[in-house]
Design a protein around this nucleic acid. Structure first.
Length: 267
DNA sequence: ATGGGGATGTTCT
DNA sequence: GAACATCCCCATC
């Protein structure tokens, strides 16, 4: 009968704007760091109208490991009901390979109502509740029961709204202000910061109105990618050590740094 | 800086 | 009843 921790829901966001500072002022339309990059041409751009740089189904239709690597550098955009756009560059992912992968929810071919999204078409979201209180967001890849877990983002836009969504009102103590690097450096943190919950489960990242992926860093300027062991799967036997977690070396936005794995990384 | 423990409830045995 | 792809706070170095 514990007291329900007060949470900011999407509905509350809509009814009462969180902070006036976030309301776009007439002066600065949509000034943000990413605008400097401009739209990139790519075979993956398939959405004719609406979002010009949106990554389509073709992007997601590749095996989990290449998809997990391809996610790095792309920009996840979340549009809230009030029109606010939250943006973050993907800097850390994990690949889950399917039935043979002892760390995957689809291990042994298990298919349940919960993990159905893992078996749906590439680009389908699999959002599940972890430890009773948090969410993790995966994107289905090519391959039955295979997917990519998003573990960390570099916040690019809407940081004050993210801070509001992330700061939990704990009884008694007024929680301190979160640093920028604390907003999205973990799979459940990024879900909090972008207001991603179970309602996103089984939605299509290639088609959804409230969230999409945009092409981010162009190939040549990408940082080195570290391949490290995945986090929080110590039960998975030989699969525990496999280098299926990928992140940008040197990025301050990553959730867990693996110095040993970085020794084996091409600079 | 690092580590231990509590929160919290759905899913699965 | 146990496990869980986590996070946060507090204690201790």
């Amino acid at each position: 009968m514990g007291q329900k921790k007060q949470r900011l829901t999407e509905a509350e966001l809509q009814q009462s704007p969180l902070d006036t500072a976030q309301t776009p002022s007439p002066k600065d339309p949509h000034l943000r760091p990413t605008s400097a990059l401009g739209p990139q041409r790519s075979i993956y751009f398939s959405s004719p109208q609406g979002h010009p740089a949106r990554l389509g189904t073709e992007f997601f239709d590749q095996p989990a490991v290449p998809l997990a690597r391809a996610f790095l550098g792309q920009v996840l955009v979340r549009r809230l009901p009030d029109g606010t756009e939250l943006r973050g560059r993907v800097v850390e992912t994990e690949a889950y390979l399917g039935p043979e992968d002892e760390a995957a929810h689809s291990r042994g071919g298990r298919q349940t109502p919960r993990n159905r999204g893992m078996f749906m078409k590439p680009g389908t979201l699999y959002v599940y509740i972890i430890y009773g209180m948090y969410f993790c967001m995966n994107v289905s890849s090519q391959g039955d029961g295979a997917c990519v877990l998003l573990r960390a983002l570099e916040p690019l836009g809407g940081l004050e709204t993210m801070r509001q969504l992330r700061s939990n009102l704990r009884k008694g103590t007024l929680s301190r202000t979160l640093k920028d690097r604390e907003l999205c450096n973990g799979p459940s943190k990024l879900c909090q910061a972008l207001a991603i919950d179970k309602s996103f489960d089984q939605r299509d990242l290639a088609q959804d109105e409230a969230m999409w992926l945009e092409c981010g860093l162009p190939g040549p300027s990408r940082p080195a990618v570290v391949a490290a062991a995945r986090v929080g799967i110590s039960y998975a036997g030989e699969w525990t050590q496999k280098p299926l977690r990928f992140y940008f070396q040197g990025s301050p936005w990553v959730s867990v740094v693996d110095r040993a794995a970085e020794q084996d990384t091409q600079a």
